[in-house]
Design a protein around this nucleic acid. Structure first.
Lengths: 190, 190
DNA sequence: ATCTTCATGTAATAAGTTACATGATTCC
DNA sequence: GGAATCATGTAACTTATTACATGAAGAT
Protein backbone atom coordinates (compact mmCIF):
# COMPACT_ATOMS: atom_id res chain seq x y z
CA UNK A 1 0.00 0.00 0.00
CA UNK A 2 1.24 3.31 1.18
CA UNK A 3 1.01 6.18 -1.20
CA UNK A 4 3.82 8.63 -0.66
CA UNK A 5 4.24 9.90 2.88
CA UNK A 6 0.58 9.92 3.77
CA UNK A 7 1.32 9.94 7.50
CA UNK A 8 3.33 13.12 7.01
CA UNK A 9 0.31 14.89 5.53
CA UNK A 10 -2.10 13.35 8.00
CA UNK A 11 -0.05 14.88 10.80
CA UNK A 12 0.33 18.26 9.07
CA UNK A 13 -3.42 18.17 8.49
CA UNK A 14 -4.20 17.47 12.12
CA UNK A 15 -2.08 20.47 13.08
CA UNK A 16 -3.87 22.80 10.65
CA UNK A 17 -6.14 24.33 13.30
CA UNK A 18 -4.44 23.93 16.68
CA UNK A 19 -1.07 22.99 18.06
CA UNK A 20 -0.95 19.38 19.22
CA UNK A 21 1.30 16.93 21.00
CA UNK A 22 2.22 13.49 19.72
CA UNK A 23 -0.22 12.10 22.22
CA UNK A 24 -3.02 14.33 20.88
CA UNK A 25 -2.33 13.14 17.36
CA UNK A 26 -2.37 9.53 18.52
CA UNK A 27 -5.77 10.23 20.12
CA UNK A 28 -7.11 11.83 16.94
CA UNK A 29 -6.42 8.60 15.06
CA UNK A 30 -8.75 6.89 17.52
CA UNK A 31 -11.55 9.30 16.62
CA UNK A 32 -13.37 10.01 13.33
CA UNK A 33 -10.30 10.34 11.14
CA UNK A 34 -9.17 6.92 12.39
CA UNK A 35 -11.82 5.53 10.03
CA UNK A 36 -9.56 6.41 7.11
CA UNK A 37 -6.02 6.59 8.41
CA UNK A 38 -4.22 5.60 11.56
CA UNK A 39 -0.81 5.01 13.05
CA UNK A 40 0.68 3.81 16.32
CA UNK A 41 2.32 6.27 18.69
CA UNK A 42 5.77 4.89 17.90
CA UNK A 43 5.41 5.80 14.25
CA UNK A 44 3.93 9.19 15.07
CA UNK A 45 6.77 10.25 17.36
CA UNK A 46 9.28 9.17 14.74
CA UNK A 47 7.49 11.10 12.00
CA UNK A 48 7.20 14.22 14.17
CA UNK A 49 10.96 14.15 14.69
CA UNK A 50 11.44 13.96 10.93
CA UNK A 51 8.99 16.81 10.25
CA UNK A 52 10.87 18.96 12.76
CA UNK A 53 14.12 18.31 10.92
CA UNK A 54 12.42 19.22 7.67
CA UNK A 55 11.19 22.44 9.35
CA UNK A 56 7.58 21.78 8.44
CA UNK A 57 6.67 22.03 12.12
CA UNK A 58 8.19 23.64 15.20
CA UNK A 59 7.84 22.65 18.83
CA UNK A 60 7.64 24.04 22.34
CA UNK A 61 7.11 22.58 25.79
CA UNK A 62 3.89 22.92 27.74
CA UNK A 63 3.58 21.74 31.34
CA UNK A 64 0.54 19.75 32.35
CA UNK A 65 0.64 19.64 36.11
CA UNK A 66 3.88 20.08 38.04
CA UNK A 67 6.40 18.09 36.06
CA UNK A 68 4.72 16.38 33.09
CA UNK A 69 5.95 17.90 29.87
CA UNK A 70 3.87 17.98 26.71
CA UNK A 71 5.80 18.67 23.56
CA UNK A 72 3.51 20.78 21.41
CA UNK A 73 3.91 21.09 17.65
CA UNK A 74 2.93 23.98 15.38
CA UNK A 75 2.78 24.17 11.59
CA UNK A 76 5.43 26.46 10.12
CA UNK A 77 4.72 28.55 7.02
CA UNK A 78 6.62 25.97 5.01
CA UNK A 79 4.46 23.24 6.53
CA UNK A 80 1.26 25.13 5.73
CA UNK A 81 2.30 25.51 2.10
CA UNK A 82 3.26 21.88 1.77
CA UNK A 83 -0.06 20.79 3.27
CA UNK A 84 -2.03 23.14 1.04
CA UNK A 85 -0.34 21.80 -2.09
CA UNK A 86 -1.02 18.23 -1.05
CA UNK A 87 -4.68 18.95 -0.29
CA UNK A 88 -5.24 20.14 -3.85
CA UNK A 89 -3.41 17.23 -5.47
CA UNK A 90 -5.52 14.96 -7.61
CA UNK A 91 -4.94 11.22 -7.44
CA UNK A 92 -4.10 9.63 -10.76
CA UNK A 93 -5.06 6.12 -9.70
CA UNK A 94 -6.84 4.24 -6.92
CA UNK A 95 -4.95 2.12 -4.43
CA UNK A 96 -6.04 -1.41 -3.58
CA UNK A 97 -8.40 -1.19 -0.61
CA UNK A 98 -7.15 -4.11 1.39
CA UNK A 99 -9.84 -6.23 3.01
CA UNK A 100 -8.86 -9.50 4.62
CA UNK A 101 -12.43 -10.76 4.91
CA UNK A 102 -13.05 -10.42 1.19
CA UNK A 103 -9.69 -12.02 0.46
CA UNK A 104 -10.52 -14.99 2.66
CA UNK A 105 -13.88 -15.32 0.99
CA UNK A 106 -12.28 -15.69 -2.41
CA UNK A 107 -10.70 -18.94 -1.24
CA UNK A 108 -13.81 -20.51 0.24
CA UNK A 109 -13.82 -23.60 -1.95
CA UNK A 110 -14.48 -26.78 0.08
CA UNK A 111 -15.53 -24.87 3.18
CA UNK A 112 -18.93 -26.09 4.43
CA UNK A 113 -21.73 -23.53 4.27
CA UNK A 114 -22.18 -23.68 8.05
CA UNK A 115 -18.57 -22.59 8.64
CA UNK A 116 -18.92 -19.95 5.98
CA UNK A 117 -22.03 -18.57 7.64
CA UNK A 118 -20.20 -18.41 10.97
CA UNK A 119 -17.53 -16.26 9.33
CA UNK A 120 -20.20 -14.01 7.89
CA UNK A 121 -22.00 -13.76 11.25
CA UNK A 122 -18.77 -12.71 12.89
CA UNK A 123 -18.12 -10.05 10.27
CA UNK A 124 -21.72 -8.88 10.50
CA UNK A 125 -21.33 -8.45 14.25
CA UNK A 126 -18.13 -6.45 13.98
CA UNK A 127 -19.57 -4.23 11.25
CA UNK A 128 -22.86 -3.68 13.07
CA UNK A 129 -21.06 -2.60 16.23
CA UNK A 130 -18.92 -0.23 14.25
CA UNK A 131 -21.94 1.22 12.47
CA UNK A 132 -23.75 1.83 15.75
CA UNK A 133 -20.71 3.55 17.18
CA UNK A 134 -20.47 5.77 14.10
CA UNK A 135 -24.17 6.63 14.28
CA UNK A 136 -23.82 7.62 17.91
CA UNK A 137 -20.97 9.90 16.95
CA UNK A 138 -23.06 11.38 14.18
CA UNK A 139 -26.04 11.99 16.47
CA UNK A 140 -23.78 13.56 19.08
CA UNK A 141 -22.26 16.04 16.64
CA UNK A 142 -24.99 16.67 14.10
CA UNK A 143 -28.23 15.62 15.76
CA UNK A 144 -30.77 13.07 14.60
CA UNK A 145 -31.87 14.75 11.37
CA UNK A 146 -30.84 13.33 8.04
CA UNK A 147 -28.89 16.30 6.86
CA UNK A 148 -27.86 19.21 9.04
CA UNK A 149 -28.36 22.68 7.59
CA UNK A 150 -25.68 24.84 9.10
CA UNK A 151 -22.23 23.42 8.55
CA UNK A 152 -19.24 25.68 8.85
CA UNK A 153 -15.96 24.76 7.23
CA UNK A 154 -14.66 22.92 10.28
CA UNK A 155 -17.68 20.72 10.74
CA UNK A 156 -17.90 19.95 7.04
CA UNK A 157 -14.79 17.78 7.04
CA UNK A 158 -16.03 15.92 10.07
CA UNK A 159 -19.45 15.56 8.47
CA UNK A 160 -18.03 14.11 5.27
CA UNK A 161 -15.82 11.63 7.09
CA UNK A 162 -18.65 10.42 9.32
CA UNK A 163 -21.18 10.09 6.52
CA UNK A 164 -18.58 8.33 4.40
CA UNK A 165 -17.81 5.83 7.14
CA UNK A 166 -21.49 5.25 7.92
CA UNK A 167 -22.36 4.73 4.30
CA UNK A 168 -19.43 2.34 3.88
CA UNK A 169 -20.51 0.22 6.82
CA UNK A 170 -24.17 0.19 5.80
CA UNK A 171 -23.17 -0.93 2.34
CA UNK A 172 -20.88 -3.61 3.76
CA UNK A 173 -23.65 -4.93 5.98
CA UNK A 174 -26.13 -4.97 3.11
CA UNK A 175 -23.73 -6.99 0.97
CA UNK A 176 -23.03 -9.39 3.86
CA UNK A 177 -26.72 -10.10 4.30
CA UNK A 178 -27.33 -10.57 0.59
CA UNK A 179 -24.42 -12.99 0.39
CA UNK A 180 -25.65 -14.91 3.42
CA UNK A 181 -28.95 -15.45 1.63
CA UNK A 182 -27.10 -17.03 -1.28
CA UNK A 183 -25.15 -19.30 1.02
CA UNK A 184 -28.30 -20.39 2.84
CA UNK A 185 -29.89 -21.30 -0.48
CA UNK A 186 -26.87 -23.42 -1.35
CA UNK A 187 -26.93 -25.02 2.06
CA UNK A 188 -30.20 -26.85 1.35
CA UNK A 189 -28.55 -28.60 -1.55
CA UNK A 190 -25.77 -30.07 0.59
CA UNK B 1 -1.59 -1.64 8.22
CA UNK B 2 -0.90 -5.28 7.71
CA UNK B 3 -2.60 -7.87 9.83
CA UNK B 4 -0.35 -10.85 10.44
CA UNK B 5 1.20 -12.33 7.32
CA UNK B 6 -1.73 -11.74 5.03
CA UNK B 7 0.41 -12.06 1.92
CA UNK B 8 1.48 -15.51 3.05
CA UNK B 9 -2.14 -16.66 3.15
CA UNK B 10 -3.06 -14.82 -0.03
CA UNK B 11 -0.36 -16.81 -1.82
CA UNK B 12 -1.30 -20.12 -0.21
CA UNK B 13 -4.89 -19.37 -1.17
CA UNK B 14 -4.03 -18.68 -4.78
CA UNK B 15 -2.26 -22.04 -4.90
CA UNK B 16 -5.27 -23.91 -3.47
CA UNK B 17 -6.52 -25.12 -6.87
CA UNK B 18 -3.57 -25.15 -9.26
CA UNK B 19 0.17 -24.88 -9.16
CA UNK B 20 1.38 -21.42 -10.05
CA UNK B 21 4.55 -19.45 -10.69
CA UNK B 22 5.48 -16.19 -9.04
CA UNK B 23 4.53 -14.48 -12.26
CA UNK B 24 1.09 -16.14 -12.24
CA UNK B 25 0.52 -14.94 -8.69
CA UNK B 26 1.58 -11.44 -9.64
CA UNK B 27 -0.96 -11.58 -12.48
CA UNK B 28 -3.72 -12.80 -10.16
CA UNK B 29 -3.30 -9.69 -8.07
CA UNK B 30 -4.09 -7.67 -11.18
CA UNK B 31 -7.40 -9.52 -11.57
CA UNK B 32 -10.47 -9.77 -9.31
CA UNK B 33 -8.65 -10.54 -6.08
CA UNK B 34 -6.55 -7.45 -6.65
CA UNK B 35 -9.62 -5.51 -5.51
CA UNK B 36 -8.90 -6.65 -1.96
CA UNK B 37 -5.23 -7.51 -1.75
CA UNK B 38 -2.18 -6.97 -3.87
CA UNK B 39 1.60 -7.05 -3.85
CA UNK B 40 4.47 -6.26 -6.18
CA UNK B 41 6.45 -9.05 -7.79
CA UNK B 42 9.49 -8.28 -5.64
CA UNK B 43 7.52 -8.97 -2.49
CA UNK B 44 5.91 -12.07 -3.94
CA UNK B 45 9.20 -13.72 -4.95
CA UNK B 46 10.61 -12.99 -1.50
CA UNK B 47 7.56 -14.45 0.22
CA UNK B 48 7.61 -17.57 -1.98
CA UNK B 49 11.21 -18.17 -0.94
CA UNK B 50 10.16 -17.90 2.70
CA UNK B 51 7.19 -20.24 2.23
CA UNK B 52 9.51 -22.80 0.60
CA UNK B 53 11.81 -22.66 3.63
CA UNK B 54 8.82 -23.13 5.89
CA UNK B 55 7.84 -26.15 3.76
CA UNK B 56 4.33 -24.82 3.15
CA UNK B 57 4.94 -25.05 -0.58
CA UNK B 58 7.26 -27.04 -2.86
CA UNK B 59 8.57 -26.14 -6.28
CA UNK B 60 9.54 -27.58 -9.64
CA UNK B 61 10.70 -26.21 -12.96
CA UNK B 62 8.51 -26.06 -16.04
CA UNK B 63 9.84 -25.02 -19.42
CA UNK B 64 7.86 -22.57 -21.50
CA UNK B 65 9.47 -22.62 -24.90
CA UNK B 66 13.09 -23.66 -25.38
CA UNK B 67 14.91 -22.07 -22.48
CA UNK B 68 12.52 -19.99 -20.38
CA UNK B 69 12.09 -21.57 -16.98
CA UNK B 70 8.95 -21.15 -14.94
CA UNK B 71 9.31 -22.05 -11.29
CA UNK B 72 6.03 -23.66 -10.33
CA UNK B 73 4.84 -23.87 -6.73
CA UNK B 74 2.55 -26.46 -5.14
CA UNK B 75 0.86 -26.45 -1.73
CA UNK B 76 2.26 -29.12 0.60
CA UNK B 77 0.03 -30.93 3.09
CA UNK B 78 1.37 -28.64 5.77
CA UNK B 79 0.52 -25.66 3.61
CA UNK B 80 -3.01 -26.91 3.00
CA UNK B 81 -3.61 -27.33 6.70
CA UNK B 82 -2.22 -23.91 7.52
CA UNK B 83 -4.42 -22.32 4.87
CA UNK B 84 -7.49 -24.20 6.02
CA UNK B 85 -7.00 -23.07 9.62
CA UNK B 86 -6.57 -19.47 8.53
CA UNK B 87 -9.66 -19.58 6.32
CA UNK B 88 -11.81 -20.50 9.31
CA UNK B 89 -10.29 -17.91 11.64
CA UNK B 90 -12.64 -15.19 12.85
CA UNK B 91 -11.37 -11.64 13.06
CA UNK B 92 -11.66 -10.08 16.50
CA UNK B 93 -11.46 -6.52 15.26
CA UNK B 94 -11.62 -4.46 12.07
CA UNK B 95 -8.55 -2.81 10.63
CA UNK B 96 -8.56 0.80 9.52
CA UNK B 97 -9.52 0.90 5.86
CA UNK B 98 -7.08 3.49 4.65
CA UNK B 99 -8.49 5.98 2.17
CA UNK B 100 -6.40 8.97 1.21
CA UNK B 101 -9.27 10.82 -0.43
CA UNK B 102 -11.38 10.73 2.72
CA UNK B 103 -8.36 11.74 4.78
CA UNK B 104 -7.71 14.73 2.55
CA UNK B 105 -11.34 15.72 2.77
CA UNK B 106 -11.20 15.91 6.53
CA UNK B 107 -8.74 18.79 6.22
CA UNK B 108 -10.66 20.81 3.68
CA UNK B 109 -11.00 23.96 5.80
CA UNK B 110 -10.22 27.10 3.77
CA UNK B 111 -10.27 25.28 0.45
CA UNK B 112 -12.60 27.05 -2.01
CA UNK B 113 -15.63 25.05 -3.07
CA UNK B 114 -14.51 25.13 -6.70
CA UNK B 115 -11.22 23.38 -5.86
CA UNK B 116 -13.07 20.96 -3.65
CA UNK B 117 -15.45 20.09 -6.47
CA UNK B 118 -12.50 19.50 -8.79
CA UNK B 119 -11.13 16.96 -6.31
CA UNK B 120 -14.53 15.28 -6.14
CA UNK B 121 -14.83 15.22 -9.94
CA UNK B 122 -11.46 13.56 -10.20
CA UNK B 123 -12.39 10.93 -7.65
CA UNK B 124 -15.75 10.40 -9.34
CA UNK B 125 -13.98 9.78 -12.63
CA UNK B 126 -11.57 7.25 -11.20
CA UNK B 127 -14.34 5.41 -9.35
CA UNK B 128 -16.67 5.40 -12.34
CA UNK B 129 -13.99 3.91 -14.58
CA UNK B 130 -13.27 1.26 -12.00
CA UNK B 131 -16.95 0.44 -11.61
CA UNK B 132 -17.40 0.05 -15.37
CA UNK B 133 -14.40 -2.25 -15.52
CA UNK B 134 -15.81 -4.36 -12.69
CA UNK B 135 -19.22 -4.54 -14.34
CA UNK B 136 -17.63 -5.72 -17.57
CA UNK B 137 -15.85 -8.44 -15.65
CA UNK B 138 -19.09 -9.43 -13.99
CA UNK B 139 -20.96 -9.57 -17.30
CA UNK B 140 -18.18 -11.63 -18.85
CA UNK B 141 -18.22 -14.24 -16.09
CA UNK B 142 -21.81 -14.27 -14.88
CA UNK B 143 -23.87 -12.72 -17.67
CA UNK B 144 -26.20 -9.77 -17.52
CA UNK B 145 -28.76 -11.13 -15.07
CA UNK B 146 -28.90 -9.76 -11.55
CA UNK B 147 -28.16 -12.97 -9.79
CA UNK B 148 -26.89 -16.11 -11.48
CA UNK B 149 -28.51 -19.36 -10.45
CA UNK B 150 -25.88 -22.04 -10.84
CA UNK B 151 -22.75 -21.21 -8.93
CA UNK B 152 -20.34 -23.97 -8.11
CA UNK B 153 -17.84 -23.61 -5.29
CA UNK B 154 -15.14 -22.12 -7.50
CA UNK B 155 -17.29 -19.43 -9.05
CA UNK B 156 -18.83 -18.51 -5.71
CA UNK B 157 -15.63 -16.93 -4.39
CA UNK B 158 -15.21 -14.99 -7.58
CA UNK B 159 -18.86 -13.97 -7.48
CA UNK B 160 -18.60 -12.66 -3.93
CA UNK B 161 -15.46 -10.69 -4.63
CA UNK B 162 -16.89 -9.09 -7.75
CA UNK B 163 -20.24 -8.21 -6.18
CA UNK B 164 -18.44 -6.84 -3.14
CA UNK B 165 -16.19 -4.64 -5.25
CA UNK B 166 -19.09 -3.44 -7.41
CA UNK B 167 -21.22 -2.63 -4.42
CA UNK B 168 -18.33 -0.80 -2.77
CA UNK B 169 -17.74 1.38 -5.82
CA UNK B 170 -21.45 2.09 -6.35
CA UNK B 171 -21.71 3.15 -2.73
CA UNK B 172 -18.61 5.31 -3.01
CA UNK B 173 -19.99 7.03 -6.10
CA UNK B 174 -23.35 7.61 -4.45
CA UNK B 175 -21.69 9.25 -1.47
CA UNK B 176 -19.48 11.38 -3.75
CA UNK B 177 -22.52 12.71 -5.58
CA UNK B 178 -24.44 13.41 -2.41
CA UNK B 179 -21.47 15.29 -0.98
CA UNK B 180 -21.03 17.28 -4.17
CA UNK B 181 -24.62 18.46 -3.83
CA UNK B 182 -23.85 19.80 -0.37
CA UNK B 183 -20.77 21.60 -1.61
CA UNK B 184 -22.68 23.16 -4.50
CA UNK B 185 -25.28 24.45 -2.06
CA UNK B 186 -22.53 26.04 0.04
CA UNK B 187 -20.94 27.50 -3.06
CA UNK B 188 -23.86 29.92 -3.64
CA UNK B 189 -23.23 31.44 -0.23
CA UNK B 190 -19.62 32.30 -1.00
C1' DA C 1 -2.55 1.97 47.22
C1' DT C 2 -3.42 0.71 42.61
C1' DC C 3 -5.50 1.18 38.17
C1' DT C 4 -6.21 3.94 34.13
C1' DT C 5 -4.92 7.47 31.36
C1' DC C 6 -1.56 10.90 30.10
C1' DA C 7 2.86 11.38 28.07
C1' DT C 8 7.28 10.35 25.33
C1' DG C 9 10.54 7.91 23.41
C1' DT C 10 13.72 3.80 21.19
C1' DA C 11 14.75 -0.96 19.26
C1' DA C 12 13.74 -4.81 16.67
C1' DT C 13 11.18 -6.70 13.26
C1' DA C 14 7.84 -7.12 9.48
C1' DA C 15 5.63 -5.51 5.36
C1' DG C 16 5.66 -3.00 1.26
C1' DT C 17 7.60 0.03 -2.67
C1' DT C 18 10.99 1.51 -5.98
C1' DA C 19 14.92 0.78 -8.37
C1' DC C 20 18.33 -2.22 -10.23
C1' DA C 21 19.37 -6.18 -13.19
C1' DT C 22 18.78 -9.74 -16.66
C1' DG C 23 17.04 -12.57 -20.27
C1' DA C 24 13.29 -15.23 -23.25
C1' DT C 25 9.15 -15.25 -26.02
C1' DT C 26 5.49 -13.46 -28.67
C1' DC C 27 3.20 -10.25 -31.52
C1' DC C 28 3.38 -6.88 -35.20
C1' DG D 1 13.79 -5.36 -35.80
C1' DG D 2 11.30 -3.53 -32.02
C1' DA D 3 7.75 -3.37 -28.58
C1' DA D 4 5.06 -5.74 -25.28
C1' DT D 5 4.73 -9.34 -22.34
C1' DC D 6 6.62 -13.34 -19.95
C1' DA D 7 9.74 -14.55 -16.38
C1' DT D 8 12.80 -14.20 -12.04
C1' DG D 9 15.42 -12.28 -8.83
C1' DT D 10 18.13 -8.77 -5.46
C1' DA D 11 19.17 -4.18 -3.13
C1' DA D 12 17.96 -0.09 -1.03
C1' DC D 13 14.64 2.22 1.16
C1' DT D 14 10.18 3.50 3.33
C1' DT D 15 6.35 2.42 6.07
C1' DA D 16 4.19 0.13 9.87
C1' DT D 17 3.80 -2.99 13.99
C1' DT D 18 5.24 -4.96 18.34
C1' DA D 19 7.95 -4.85 22.14
C1' DC D 20 10.79 -2.50 25.37
C1' DA D 21 11.24 1.31 28.71
C1' DT D 22 10.00 5.02 31.78
C1' DG D 23 7.51 8.20 34.54
C1' DA D 24 3.53 11.71 35.98
C1' DA D 25 -1.31 12.69 36.92
C1' DG D 26 -5.95 11.60 37.93
C1' DA D 27 -9.61 8.62 39.56
C1' DT D 28 -11.39 5.20 42.99
Amino acid sequence: MAARRVLKYAILGLLRKDDKSGYDITSDFKQAIGQFWSAKHSQIYTELKKLLEEELISSYIELSGEKLEKKMYTLTEKGKEDLHTWLLTQDDHLETEKDVFALRLYFLKDIPSADLLALFENQLNLRTNKLNMLKEQYAYHFGEENRPVDLDADDLGHYFVLTKAISREENYIFWLMESMDIIRQRQYGE
